[in-house]
């Protein structure tokens, strides 16, 4: 005898367990983005096939795990480039990208300028800020001063599918 409400409860419990598994994958990407992660390994560790994980992840979070991973890497790259003491190639490898070409392409899509231009602009902004005796950062189109850090992190995070429109990209 299987009561319909028992069945519904079982299905919902399974759905919540599946979502929690996806959450662990996403958290692992956040934590280990600088490692040579790939979707096959992520999927294997939660006993899913790569295709199934990608579909389920996209359904839950609106983008594929690969896209989420690259966004996370680019986000960290902007922070490292702003520091000014690392080259673009060093930053590329520091955030776990094995290919400078893929890194540059994705960076440009998300940030609106290539990493080299971003680094130069950050250095200029830092010089100007030093001259003016204030702190500042390039590439930040929003003021984050006074915000709780986790909120600042969210509002400055590059967002997949909210890339800078092509027309706004500088020609250089």
């Amino acid at each position: 005898m299987c009561q319909p409400e028992w069945r519904r409860a079982r299905v919902q419990a399974q759905r919540l367990a599946d979502l929690a598994r996806l959450r662990r994958v996403r958290d692992r990407i956040d934590r280990e983005y600088a490692q040579p992660l790939n979707v096959e390994a992520l999927a294997r560790d939660v006993n899913m096939s790569a295709g199934h994980l990608s579909r389920q992840f996209r359904a839950a979070y609106g983008e594929s795990p690969y896209s989420y991973l690259m966004t996370r890497r680019i986000e960290r790259a902007t922070a490292l480039l702003r520091r000014g003491d690392l080259s673009v190639t060093e930053v590329c490898f520091a955030v776990g990208c094995a290919s400078l070409g893929t890194f540059t392409t994705r960076f440009t899509e998300l940030v609106g300028m290539p990493p080299g231009a971003f680094r130069r602009q950050a250095a200029e902004a830092a010089d100007q800020a030093d001259a003016a005796g204030t702190t500042g950062g390039a590439g930040l189109s929003v003021t984050v001063e006074g915000m709780p850090a986790c909120v600042a992190k969210q509002v400055t995070r590059p967002v997949r599918n909210r890339e800078v429109p092509a027309a706004a990209q500088p020609l250089a």
Binding site: D27, R31, T78, T135, A149, A152, K153, T156
Partner: peptide, 20 residues
């Protein structure tokens, strides 16, 4: 505990970590 982020220096001038 599930770790989301090791202690890290953030570009907005703080150092933090995160858990679930």
């Amino acid at each position: 505990t599930e770790v989301v982020q090791e202690p890290i220096e953030q570009p907005y001038g703080i150092r933090d970590c995160a858990f679930r």
